[in-house]
């Protein structure tokens, strides 16, 4: 009998094949925030026969950004999509054919959340992300906010390539001391368990 996770992986595999055949493209949009951006872009995609697979949007200080994944008929090129969308919207749009993994990395047992809190200064994110990069740690998601002069960063990171968690933790601790950051590493599942119903 196939377990739930087995069924999911088969579905993801099939989804991947279908998406490959339908010519998947990544579209990014950026503009000063105003009403109608999502409507214009998605109408443009529909007009070209595109089927929306996934979408993320965010607004920061009045600026809007969005990244979309859409499957198009086989004969449609990235240039055609870019031109097509330019007719529909005044927002800046760039289009790339999607390559590589079509299914987003599943939350694995190696996904951790690193929270970093410290006094706001130039280069904090650069320092932390360089620390991760030097150890082959991929940042899956990152959010930050400033509260007075305190800067807080939340990084979702993938530690698949870390050989020794203990060693990484001690390096992290030394890095935290040297850079005056309060760094806490916890497994992603803890946050899911305590915050999701």
């Amino acid at each position: 009998m196939i377990g739930k996770s087995g069924v999911n992986s088969i579905l993801n595999f099939l989804k991947g094949i279908l998406m490959t055949e339908s010519n998947l493209m990544v579209i990014s949009v950026m503009d000063r925030d105003r009403s109608g951006i999502v409507a214009e872009v998605t109408e443009g995609i529909s007009a070209l026969g595109g089927n929306l697979a996934d979408l993320r949007e965010s607004v920061l200080c009045g600026y809007f950004t969005m990244i979309l994944l859409a499957g198009f008929p086989g004969n449609v090129t990235a240039e055609q999509v870019e031109k097509g969308l330019a007719k529909q919207t005044s927002s800046r749009v760039s289009v790339e054919p999607a390559e590589g993994a079509l299914v987003e990395a599943q939350a694995s047992e190696h996904v951790y959340v690193l929270s970093a809190v410290g006094r706001d200064r130039v280069g904090l994110v650069a320092q932390v992300s360089r620390f991760c990069c030097n150890r082959g740690v991929n940042i899956l998601d990152l959010a930050s906010h400033v509260d007075g002069d305190q800067y807080t960063m939340m990084l979702q990171i993938d530690l698949s390539d870390i050989q020794s968690l203990e060693e990484f933790k001690s390096e992290l601790s030394a890095f935290g001391d040297a850079s005056h950051l309060n760094l806490v590493l916890q497994h992603n599942d803890i946050f899911r368990a305590t915050n999701e119903i």
């Binding site: 959340v113 929270s115 998601d141 959010a143 930050s144 906010h145 807080t152 939340m154 979702q156 806490v184 916890q186 803890i190 946050f191 899911r192 305590t194 915050n195 999701e196």
Partner: peptide, 16 residues
């Protein structure tokens, strides 16, 4: 991604 305030609340619960 889980919201930052939720992460901080959980971190506080575990650490402090």
């Amino acid at each position: 991604m889980i919201r930052s305030d939720q992460i901080l609340k959980t971190v506080e619960m575990i650490q402090k």
